[in-house]
Amino acid sequence: MKKIVVLSGAGISAESGIKTFRDADGLWEGHDILEVASPEGWNNNPELVLDFYNQRRKQLRDVFPNKGHSILAELEKEFDVQIITQNVDNLHEKAGSKKVLHLHGELLKVRSTRDKNYILDWQDDLTTAHKDKNGFQMRPHIVWFGEDVPAIEEAIEWAEKADIFIVIGTSLQVYPAAGILHHTKPKTPIFYIDPKPASVTQLANPLEIIPLSGSEGMMVLREKLLKLK
């Protein structure tokens, strides 16, 4: 069974109603991104940051996977599909995808500000009253700007083993995630789905750009993939 590795970004979730900050002059739900997604923002106003992610967590109850998510899940019947996502929502999992690696953390988890390995599943509001077992503040389990990306090495390992690589709904502007496709083996076919695809250079692979939304692009790509299995 051939291995498909997918790098997904905010574009695929936008179709489900989750807003992206790059489409709004750097604002994310009305906030400067550094106010709510940086260590400095956390240190300056933890209450604002906690409220912001509490609202995002509530939003997940009202959004659902779209056709792009669903097709990726359905492809597991024919391929070994691994999804590397820059998204912090759980829409890939809701659609049925089994192997999902979150590069930038997960909205439905929180972790200790002292012990990065103390991580809890979390559905409700998080406040300054929530502490870990040693009394240290809990925070959103999100990789903020300026922080290390712990999952990047595993993501690179997945990319290196891909028989087919798909990029979907990402501007390829956020590093180190944007560099993952450059770790694929030479001659590995790469398909890039995005209505406004970024320029991709210095790539030793055949690249096909599909300038459509995630759902429309995956409907087109599914037929191509079934001929490659």
Rank of each mutant, 00 (worst) to 15 (best):
N134F: 13
E106F: 04
E106Q: 14
D125N: 14
K224E: 13
K109P: 04
K58D: 13
N66W: 03
G179T: 06
M138Y: 07
H130C: 01
V81P: 04
T127M: 02
E153H: 11
I119N: 08
E223M: 13
I190G: 07
G96A: 06
K229A: 15
P39K: 05
S13T: 04
Q59P: 02
D80H: 10
P186E: 09
A95M: 10
I166L: 00
H92A: 06
N54H: 11
P186F: 07
K94G: 01
T113V: 04
G17V: 04
K98Q: 15
H102K: 11
G135P: 11
V88T: 14
R22V: 12
H102A: 02
I119P: 07
F79Q: 06
R61G: 04
G9S: 02
Q123M: 13
V81Q: 08
P206D: 13
D121T: 10
I18C: 09
I193Q: 07
L7K: 01
N44I: 06
F136G: 00
H183N: 10
Q137R: 04
P211L: 07
L120D: 03
I210N: 07
R111W: 04
E208D: 03
I168P: 00
S215N: 13
H130W: 06
P140V: 02
N90T: 07
Q59F: 11
H102N: 08
V167W: 03
A14L: 09
E106I: 07
L7D: 01
F52T: 05
K99Y: 12
Q173Y: 00
W122H: 12
L225W: 05
G17R: 14
N117A: 11
A159R: 00
P189H: 10
R22T: 12
L225V: 11
N87L: 01
Q82V: 13
E40V: 14
W158S: 09
W158V: 02
T184K: 01
R114Y: 15
L225C: 09
G9H: 03
M218G: 10
L7Q: 05
M218Y: 03
W42D: 07
L207C: 04
G17Q: 05
K161N: 14
